[in-house]
Amino acid sequence: MTGAGDAAPAGDPPAGPGAGEDARGFDRRMLEALVCPVTHAPLRYDAERQELVSRTAHLAFPVRNGIPILLVSEAREID
């Protein structure tokens, strides 16, 4: 995965097993692949609340046990 000459994205710690995982293993790298199911806009990960926030849809989707729950029926409405 890493090696001499790989350019790490600015601001990230060196990658390694478990890098970027919180509490029950939500991997922040996965965040890059996920979008809001309603608007397809990027999501912001709120580690404290364990939520994926879609500002465009005004929804916050939960992450439970490291599994992102991207169902509108499970999302919390936000301003």
Partner: peptide, 17 residues
């Protein structure tokens, strides 16, 4: 493997990925 709970009719993934 990555595990995502989502709806097949509204996939939470960008186009063409």
């Amino acid at each position: 493997l990555e595990w995502v709970q989502g709806d097949a009719m509204a996939l939470p993934f960008a186009d063409a990925g």
